[in-house]
Design a binder for these strands. Structure first.
Lengths: 294, 294
DNA sequence: GAGAGCATATGAGGTTTCCTCATGTTTTGT
DNA sequence: ACAAAACATGAGGAAACCTCATATGCTCTC
C-alpha cells in the first residue's frame, strides 16, 4: 500500500531531477518553463517534507549531497517510467501494451519483418520491444513474454516453439587460401563464437567426425558483431543460416566446409506460467503461431 | 528530458491506483484518507489531462478500461519505486545505497553471516539485496554490483574473485545400501543437478576416471531446493562444501564417494566497467576483499 | 415495489500548493 | 570595481486540491 505521506509532489521531484542534471536552479527553471524562484521553493519544500537536507548551498551554488544523488537516480527512473506510460497510453487509448523481450538477432531478422502485420491486424496493441541476451526472472521484470533460444530450460514459463535453426560455418571470401581438406583443418583458423553458445564448435566438429573437441574461440555477445567480424576476415564463424542469407547471396560471407547442421537449440516464445491472462499476449501468441506455420 | 506537460499529478495517480486495486472510489477514499468526492474529481482530472476516458461508469460502478489497467500496472510500479526511494532516503540521510544482486545460496551462506560487519563498519551505506539466478545486463538494471558464479564470462564487467568452491557428492544416509565400489556405480542412482551447472556430474566422473559422460539428472534451479531433495532421499547431489557443512555434521547428508573436487567456476563480485565511481560500491569492494582474505 | 443502503456526481466554497514578481545578497568574471 | 549571474525571500495571486452538502441512480431485502 502506498502511503500518501511520504510521496513528494510531482513538481518538487521534477525540480530536484532537473537541478541534479543541469547543475543549477536557473537552468532547471528554464527547462521546466518556470522561474528560478519556483525551483528554489520546490527544493525547500522537498527538503522539508523528507525532513533532511538534500542540497549543499555553498557560495550560492547548489550541490546535491551523495544521498540526494542516489535518490535522484531512483526518482529519475521512476519519473521516466511514468512519463513513458502516460505517452504510451495517449498514443494508444483503446488497446493494451505488450512488453516483449527479444533476442537481438532473432528480433531483427525474423520478428521485425513480420511485426508490421501484427500491428495491422491488432492496431489496439502496442508492442514494446526490449533486447535481453539472457533469460531473466519474469516475476521481477515487467515483461509479458520473451523470445528464448535454447532448450526448454527456463523455469516457470510456458513455451511456444517458433523455429529451429541451422548453423553454417562461414568466413569472408578471402580468408581461406585453399579449400579445407577436412573438417578439423578448421582448427588452424581463428574461430568466432557466441558467449552464450560455446558448445557449438564442438558440436560442429563432432558432426563431422571429430568428437570431444572444445576449441578455443573469440567470444562475441551478439550475432550482429560476430557477423561483422567474420565479414571483415576475423576468422571462421558458425552462424544461423536465417541471419546471413543476404551476406551469402552478396558474397560477403562464403561457406567454409560442409552444409549447414541443425542447431541444438530452438527459438521459443515464452511467458510466465502464473501470469494473469491478458488480451494482448493472447493475440500475440495466436498471431505468432500462425506466422510460424505460414 | 521530462516534459512537465504529460506527467499527471501525484494525487490523481494515487487515486487511479487505489481505485483499480480496491474497486471503488469510496474504498480508495478511505485508504487515502480523503473523501469520495476528492477521488471522483481526481479521476476526472486525470482523464482530462490524458485526454481520454479511463473509466467506464456503468450503473454507478467504476470499471477501468483495459488500457487503463495496463497503465495502472506501470504507474503502480513507478509509484512504489518513488515511495521506496523516499523511505530509503529518510532511513539513511547521510549515506548511499548499494543495490546488490546475489546468488541465493552464496548470499545465505557466505554473505549473510558477514554482512552485519559491513553494516557496522559502514553505517552510512544501506545495502539492498535482490536475488538473481542468471547474469543480466547492468545497463538496463539498477544494480551496482552482483555476485557471479562461473568463469570470467560476463561481458562489460570487472571482477573481484571471492571464493573457489569444492563439490562433494552426497546423499541422505539411507539412500545407499552398500558403499560404492567405483565412481561410475553412481550412475545407477538418480542424480540431482543445477540447471545452470549441468556439466558438473560429467566433470566429477571424469575426475574419477570415467570421461565423456553427461549423465541425465533431475534439474533444480537453486541449491536450497536441491539440498532438501538430497536430504529427503531423492538421489545423489553434487553440492558445494561450504553450503552443507551443517548438514554433514548433523548427518542429514553423507558423502557418497571420494573427496570433494574443485569446482570449475568461482564466485566473483562483478560490477559494470563503465559505471561512474560511487562511494558505497568502493567501500563494499574494499570490505569484501578484506573478508575474503580474512 | 417501497425503502434502506450504497454507489457516484456535482455545486459551492475553503485551504493548500504552486508560481510569479520584485528585490536583496553573495559570488564570479572581466 | 563593476557587471553578470546565481540563489533566497516577502508578498500576493492563480491553480490545484479537498470538503461539505446534496442529488441521483442502482441493488437488495422484505
Amino acid at each position: 500500500m502506498l502511503s500518501r505521506r511520504y510521496l513528494p509532489s510531482m513538481p518538487s521531484l521534477l525540480a530536484l531531477e532537473a537541478v541534479e542534471r543541469l547543475g543549477s536552479a536557473s537552468a532547471a527553471a528554464e527547462e521546466l518553463n518556470l522561474t528560478q524562484s519556483a525551483i528554489s521553493r520546490q527544493l525547500q519544500v522537498l527538503e522539508g517534507q523528507l525532513g533532511l537536507g538534500l542540497i549543499i548551498r555553498d557560495k550560492h551554488r547548489l550541490r546535491l549531497t551523495p544521498a540526494a544523488q542516489d535518490y535522484c537516480r531512483e526518482i529519475r527512473r521512476a519519473l521516466q517510467a511514468l512519463n513513458q506510460a502516460s505517452l504510451t497510453l495517449r498514443a494508444n487509448p483503446n488497446g493494451g501494451t505488450l512488453n516483449l523481450a527479444i533476442l537481438p538477432a532473432f528480433g531483427m531478422h525474423w520478428l521485425a519483418p513480420r511485426l508490421a502485420r501484427f500491428a495491422a491486424q491488432h492496431p489496439e496493441v502496442t508492442v514494446n520491444l526490449s533486447t535481453r541476451l539472457q533469460p531473466f526472472d519474469f516475476a521481477i521484470s515487467h515483461f509479458d513474454a520473451a523470445i528464448h533460444y535454447g532448450r526448454q530450460d527456463w523455469s516457470g514459463v510456458d513455451y511456444l516453439p517458433l523455429m529451429a535453426e541451422d548453423l553454417l560455418a562461414v568466413s569472408s571470401a578471402g580468408l581461406l587460401k585453399t579449400p579445407l581438406a577436412s573438417a578439423d583443418d578448421i582448427l588452424s583458423y581463428p574461430l568466432l563464437q557466441l558467449e552464450s553458445r560455446t558448445g557449438d564448435w564442438g558440436r560442429w566438429l563432432a558432426h563431422h567426425g571429430t568428437p570431444n573437441q572444445r576449441p578455443p574461440a573469440m567470444l562475441f555477445d551478439q550475432f550482429a558483431t560476430m557477423t561483422q567480424g567474420a565479414i571483415h576476415g576475423l576468422g571462421v564463424a558458425l552462424l544461423p543460416l536465417f541471419l546471413i542469407e543476404r551476406e551469402l547471396t552478396e558474397n560477403r560471407l562464403t561457406p567454409v566446409f560442409g552444409p549447414a547442421i541443425p542447431s541444438l537449440g530452438s527459438y521459443y516464445l515464452v511467458w510466465p506460467k502464473d501470469a494473469v491472462p491478458r488480451a494482448p499476449l493472447a493475440s500475440f501468441r495466436n498471431w505468432i503461431a500462425a506466422e510460424r506455420d505460414a
